[in-house]
Nucleic acid binder design. Structure first.
Lengths: 178, 178
DNA sequence: ACCTGAACACCGTTCAAGT
DNA sequence: ACCTGAACACCGTTCAAGT
């Protein structure tokens, strides 16, 4: 990688991160402009918007994967999943767009059923709970992530009042039988 | 309402409906073009995209509100909500964009807590269940709708395999105590 | 009253030409 | 090998001018 390419890449990522934080939207033109880079350069580094968002949130994805992995070896899978979801929610409120990255890193190719880094870690966490009889046997990692998609619709002012309750509803729903 | 205005309105709605069904997206320019109408005319009839989507799905919203009302007077609130959610899901897979209309018709103004037609009906259904001790006391209509947002992320090929299970997870999660 | 369509300020994406 | 920026085909929104 040439040094100018390296520099451009990080400038693009910084610009994208900044725009995501305070705009919530991600105009690729704006990113290129803010990064001081030609339009084509952006496309050379990132195939599409999803790839860019994914790259912006690598650190967060790694955090979440590590945490899921740790929770999988704890003795209370339900509490583990609940904590993990709380962390996910923390990211979701601050880092807008992170759900896209989380989603693709869980199930990279839906039709093929291909799991990404995060998918493997969440599966681990879920499996641990299922072995202990704490979760229904028929749910998978993508189910869990799908059910967290409501986070993208919750507004800031109702967040504290709603999100903890809804995460409880979700975790309760994942429990077996009844 | 002048007769040409009336005709334009229905042509816009027809065009929008058609585009939503087979594109899934709703370009306002395309709508105007397909309706054979000037750009300004579209804006005269519908303030913004949300208003247009809402108008397209009035019939569906009415159906859902009526059904919720009927279910509210049934004797099994849990089964009632489950059926209602199944109907919602049916709309969500065919009529893309309907979740937007459902959402705004449930909670028209989040910060003010203003409920729309559908909000009233779903509240009724929820209240009936809460009185019977079938649902947690602390959830409201917006909670339920928020939790159904995952429907917008499910692809067609995984739909049958995933959605029924996820609706069960949701309904289970809404039950009290545990 | 209502409609039209040009005008404005934006997009995403591509690709020849440059270094 | 990588970058630039013009070019293309689109957007959403507004508003003078028309009927």
């Amino acid at each position: 990688m040439r040094s100018d390419a390296e520099r451009n890449r990080t400038q693009i990522l910084d610009a994208a991160r900044a725009l995501l934080v305070d705009d919530g939207e991600l105009s690729l033109s704006k990113v290129a402009r803010a990064a001081g880079v030609g339009q084509g350069t952006l496309y050379r580094h990132f195939a599409d918007r999803e790839a860019l968002i994914g790259a912006v949130y690598t650190a967060e994805i790694d955090d979440l994967a590590l945490l899921a992995h740790q929770m999988a070896s704890g003795d209370d899978a339900v509490a583990g999943l609940r904590s993990w979801l709380a962390r996910l929610a923390d990211y979701a409120i601050v880092k807008r767009g992170v759900m896209t990255a989380v989603s693709t890193s869980t199930w990279t190719d839906v039709s093929a059923g291909t799991r990404g880094r995060l998918g493997v870690a969440v599966t681990e966490l879920l499996d641990a709970g299922q072995d202990a009889g704490a979760f229904r046997e028929d749910v998978d990692a993508r189910d869990v992530i799908l059910m967290t998609w409501f986070l993208t619709q919750v507004t800031r002012d109702e967040w504290d009042q709603r999100v903890p309750r809804l995460l409880d509803v979700l975790v309760d729903g994942l429990r077996p039988g009844s």
